[in-house]
């Protein structure tokens, strides 16, 4: 007669056939576990080579500009100028940090040497200020700034509103559905909203979004963050960055997946 095997967990006797069967099953399961890990890993879309130099501070020198959003105009070795967008620590804009440095004085046109964390991707550079700015800067004196703004007329664009801090380096992926909550936090915390478009050759263009008068907007654009949309507005060339001036109520959402992969 066949042995009637019965497993009792606390017993030291173990039914031989059951254990043999389980050894086989667990081996197969181990292979499945590895297989699932490989499939999940391979299934991920390619990540961008954007960079956030977490943990390493860089000193940059330039002239502060406040509009439309705070940036530092620096001069490169070849004489060209580069505008570095300034951001606060965490999910905040640079305003608080600048207020702390300048108190009631106007920082516009102030030459400054500033320590912060670099974020960069596709030729755009951003700098995160430290959470405590004291001791991270040297003021170098006031300069006269010349406006380089060129109005380029009306345009309509198709793309997505993103938060540039995460998009240009801090997080991956930093657009679309997965990242929407975070982008909403960042933009409502004062980080400038940026519009990304993608042409047929998969080349991206970036635009700082402001209202029609060129003033910063944050909360008014929250409903459109991380969703494909169509916008119309006035294009302005700021020098290193483009700006789009629009009325947020005229943004049209498009019912499709994020196109900036």
């Amino acid at each position: 007669m066949e042995k009637d095997e019965f497993y009792i967990g606390y017993s030291t006797e173990h039914p031989v056939k059951t254990m043999r069967f389980l050894k086989f099953f667990i081996t197969i399961l181990g292979i499945v576990v590895l297989g699932v890990a490989i499939i999940f890993a391979l299934g991920q879309k390619p990540f961008k080579n954007s960079t956030f130099e977490l943990g390493s501070l860089t000193e940059v020198e330039g002239v502060l500009h406040l509009t439309p959003y705070p940036f530092l105009r620096t001069t490169l070795a070849d004489g060209a100028s580069k505008d570095i967008l300034l951001l606060g620590f965490g999910k905040f804009g640079a305003t608080k940090g600048l207020q702390k440095i300048f108190e009631n004085k106007n920082p516009q046109g102030m030459a400054i040497r500033l320590n912060g964390t670099l974020i960069y991707y596709e030729g755009k550079t951003l700098l995160q200020l430290e959470s405590d700015v004291s001791g991270t800067y040297t003021l170098l004196g006031k300069t006269n700034t010349v406006s380089t703004i060129k109005e380029m007329g009306n345009v309509s664009l198709k793309g997505e509103v993103i938060d540039p801090k995460c998009y240009f380096g801090v997080m991956k992926p930093a657009f679309g559905k997965i990242h929407r909550s975070c982008a909403i936090r960042c933009i409502s915390g004062g980080i400038p909203p940026v519009y990304v478009t993608m042409n047929a050759q998969n080349e991206a263009s970036y635009y700082l979004i402001t209202d029609e008068k060129g003033e910063p907007i944050h909360d008014a654009i929250i409903d459109y963050v991380g969703k494909p949309s169509e916008i119309q507005g006035k294009l302005v060339d700021l020098g290193d960055w483009m700006q789009i001036r629009l009325n947020p109520n005229t943004i049209k959402l498009i019912d499709q997946n994020s196109a900036i992969y």
Binding site: A37, F40, A41, L42, F47, N49
Partner: peptide, 15 residues
């Protein structure tokens, strides 16, 4: 380990 190794070898720009 499997997930990390495959991600780093095929999609190294991950964070």
């Amino acid at each position: 380990l499997g997930f990390a190794v495959v991600t780093f070898t095929t999609n190294a720009n991950t964070s």
